Simulated scan of single mutants.
Amino acid sequence: MPATHPMMRIHRTTLELCTRKPIEIIDITRAAEDAVAGSGLKDGLLTLVSRHTTACLNINEQEERLMEDIETFLKRLAPKDGNYLHNLQPIDGRDNAHSHLLGLFMNTTETIPFSEGRLMLGRWQSIFFIELDGPRPERSVLMQATGI
């Protein structure tokens, strides 16, 4: 008798965010865990997608001083007051070339496996939404769980 395989399913949700600082690091681990729990899936992959060119996703350690170090590092890497051609004719009136340049070194997607309905993150890992061009009243992260 041939083996049967459970049908692959997809569950999508969107996390809506409002940012308050020019560079802001927001821990979205709980929202990602809730997305998996709400999907009803036990095993699969959770893919997170930032729908912005100046806001990214990252997996790192949640530690207060490290968060400050990351923000300081980003500000030094591409200073807001740099001489950037993009700022001569900004599309939306924002001098945000530095934000786009920082985005070159970061991810707009992260994919994390889950098993038994739980994300398979390491002990010190958290998921962060990183605003590079805030404050912004509307930001979003698509969260798609695919699995069985």
Rank of each mutant, 00 (worst) to 15 (best):
T54I: 13
L41K: 04
A31E: 12
E64D: 13
N87S: 06
E33D: 09
Q89M: 11
H98G: 15
T47I: 04
L85C: 01
Y84L: 10
T54Y: 12
L46M: 05
A55H: 08
R30D: 11
K21M: 13
H98C: 15
N58A: 07
P22G: 09
I28G: 00
D43A: 06
E68D: 14
G103A: 14
R20Q: 11
D81C: 04
L66I: 11
I59Q: 02
K75R: 15
T72N: 08
R65H: 15
E33K: 08
L46V: 05
E61A: 10
L85A: 10
G40I: 03
Q89Y: 11
S99M: 07
G38A: 06
A31R: 04
E71L: 02
I28Q: 00
I23L: 15
N83I: 11
A35K: 00
M67I: 13
A32S: 08
V49E: 06
K80Q: 12
L66V: 12
L48E: 06
C18S: 04
E63F: 13
N87W: 01
I91V: 14
A31S: 11
T19W: 00
H100N: 14
D43L: 03
I91T: 12
H52R: 08
I59K: 02
E61F: 05
T19F: 00
I26C: 11
I23E: 07
T47Q: 06
K21I: 06
R76Q: 13
I59N: 02
V36T: 04
A35M: 02
G82V: 09
N96K: 03
L48G: 05
A37T: 09
T19S: 06
T19D: 00
I91H: 13
L101S: 05
P79Y: 07
L45N: 03
T29V: 08
N60H: 05
R20G: 12
E68L: 12
K75Y: 07
D81H: 04
L46K: 04
F73E: 02
R65S: 15
S50C: 04
P22F: 10
E71D: 09
E64T: 11
C18H: 00
A37V: 12
R94A: 11
G93Y: 04
E33S: 08
V49L: 13
H100D: 15
Q89L: 12
R30T: 06
G93C: 05
T72V: 06
C18K: 03
L45K: 03
Y84W: 14
N83C: 14
I25Q: 11
G82Y: 09
L88G: 05
P79G: 13
H86P: 10
G103V: 03
G93V: 02
